[in-house]
């Protein structure tokens, strides 16, 4: 029984400084235009953590910002996409210009790799990807990305074995957490439950810090218990401009603006990083610059109408 609350609350600067190192493999939370951990991605960019390997399923803004800031050496994911808002353009540009290594998997394959990591087993079978170029064409041969074996219990049935994945650190934006890191994710959870439990360290930002007494009286609501979490940061709007279920909708205008700059690249993109990250003293300043109070209120109202 947890009688004493372990206080893991931190500010984003200290959390990134303490838990993320150059060369780390970073698990990226969120999917597409939903619950991206913008706050933590900004902080990593600000601190210029280098030679990162980014892993996840459908990666979007976090990956694109870190690639665009030239901090990434490799990605392993299922897709780089903002769906209707387009491809992750800085990531696309980096691949087209041979600036990063990349390993493609299907979404189920990546989620399965995290599952293996979370179970402490070395690899996991899947029946996806067979017969396709996901298995036949590789960008680099540095890490053996899979093995094909025959099912030991079924003659002539090929099975793909995927290596377990345990990120050095994962970054997540959740709806709620208490001080010790019991977190509540509302709405879809994408690949995060497995990824969090597989990671050596996890930094969570949340919309709202909740009382630990609430956790004890609602244990069924807890998505991930505190033992997997290392730092908790309360940051309302920490997922902006993507949506956070129950809190606010995505900001189409700012996502389109970002995509325009990311697609143009060069000076236009570096100006974006200057204006919205390097020259912002706080995350609140970024929110004010990119949305402002009225827009934020509208995004919150819009979400409430959809619940």
């Amino acid at each position: 029984m947890l009688n004493k609350i372990i206080d893991k609350t931190m500010n984003p600067k200290d959390a990134v400084q303490e838990f993320i190192s150059d060369g780390d493999t970073i698990g990226i939370g969120g999917q597409s235009i939903g619950r991206v951990s913008t706050l933590l991605a900004h902080e990593i960019v600000r601190q210029q953590k280098k030679d990162l390997t980014l892993v996840g399923c459908n990666l979007s803004l976090s990956m694109d910002l870190l690639v665009g800031a030239k901090l990434v050496k490799r990605t392993e994911c299922g897709s780089g996409s903002f769906e209707r808002f387009g491809t992750a353009f800085q990531w696309r540009n980096a691949i087209q210009n041979n600036l990063i290594e990349f390993q493609d998997y299907s979404h189920l394959a990546m989620a399965s790799r995290f599952l293996a990591g979370s179970l402490g087993i070395p690899f996991i079978p899947t029946k996806s990807m067979l017969g396709t170029d996901l298995l036949k064409k590789q960008n680099t041969n540095k890490i053996n990305p899979f093995e094909i074996i025959n099912n030991p219990w079924q003659k002539d049935e090929p099975v793909v074995l995927l290596p377990a994945l345990q990120p050095d650190v994962s970054i997540i934006h959740a709806q709620m957490a208490d001080k010790s890191g019991n977190i509540i994710i509302e709405g879809f959870t994408t690949h995060e439950p497995e990824m969090i439990k597989a990671s050596k360290k996890v930094i969570v930002s949340c919309e709202k810090l909740i009382d630990s007494e609430f956790v004890k009286s609602h244990p069924e609501k807890i998505s991930i218990p505190y033992i997997f979490i290392d730092a908790v940061i309360e940051q309302p709007l920490g997922g902006y401009p993507t949506s956070v279920y129950n809190y606010y909708e995505h900001d189409s205008d700012h996502i389109l603006y970002y995509q325009e700059k990311a697609r143009s690249g060069g000076k236009e993109y570096s100006n974006y990083l200057d204006e919205y990250i390097y020259n912002c003293k706080s995350f609140e300043e970024y929110i004010q610059k990119s949305a402002g109070t009225n827009k934020i209120k509208a995004l919150k109202d819009s979400m409430l109408k959809l619940l």
Binding site: A111, F188, H191, P193
Partner: peptide
């Protein structure tokens, strides 16, 4: 406009994970 849009979550019977959908149902 997205698989993460609250409009595809409205009155669902379950908000689960990617592993639930692509693993537990599809695979």
């Amino acid at each position: 406009t997205s698989v993460c849009d609250p409009r595809v979550m409205y009155k669902a019977i379950k908000h689960g994970s990617l592993l639930d959908s692509l693993g537990g149902i599809l695979q």
